[in-house]
Design a protein around this nucleic acid. Structure first.
Lengths: 74, 74
DNA sequence: TCTCATTTGTTCGTATGTATC
DNA sequence: AGATACATACGAACAAATGAG
């Protein structure tokens, strides 16, 4: 899924994957995104990378993150 | 007891300490391990670290953890 | 039945150190 | 030098189940 050797860094690759899943309806509006731990497991990445990916989408206004709860699709 | 500056991280140091206590009979088979809160206090560590240490032993098959009850020596 | 403390499970926020490119 | 990544750690808050009373 994620290629660590690509020119685009892993956190951006993941952000793009999540964005596609949102666009496709796999992650519907209002639903909760997988947790950082789940992204870590699915994509075999560290927590930093998972967090940064979600952070990209948060700054882009696509998701909202609530402490101790998770991130939700807007 | 635990040296945060050692090359071996605290959670592994604690896992080793618990393992020794099991081997020595200080934590007998079938008995309940101290709770995470108790490990936190005794070793002055965070909950993460206590949990990870027990997790190491759980994955090693030395203990079994029951939600809301605790971890038991196998 | 109800309340309360205990205990593990989960989740995000933050910080540090090390390594790699 | 800078960006990126990983491992580790601490904290905080909440959930859920158990057990004591």
């Amino acid at each position: 899924m994620i290629d660590p050797t690509a020119r685009v860094p892993p956190y951006r690759q993941l952000a793009e994957i999540i964005r596609e899943r949102i666009d496709s309806g796999q992650y519907p509006k209002g639903s909760r995104l997988p947790s950082e731990a789940e992204f870590m497991e699915e994509f075999e990445i560290g927590r930093n990378t998972a967090r940064r990916a979600v952070g990209v989408l948060r700054e882009a206004g696509l998701v909202e993150t609530v402490k101790t709860r998770g991130s939700y699709v807007l």
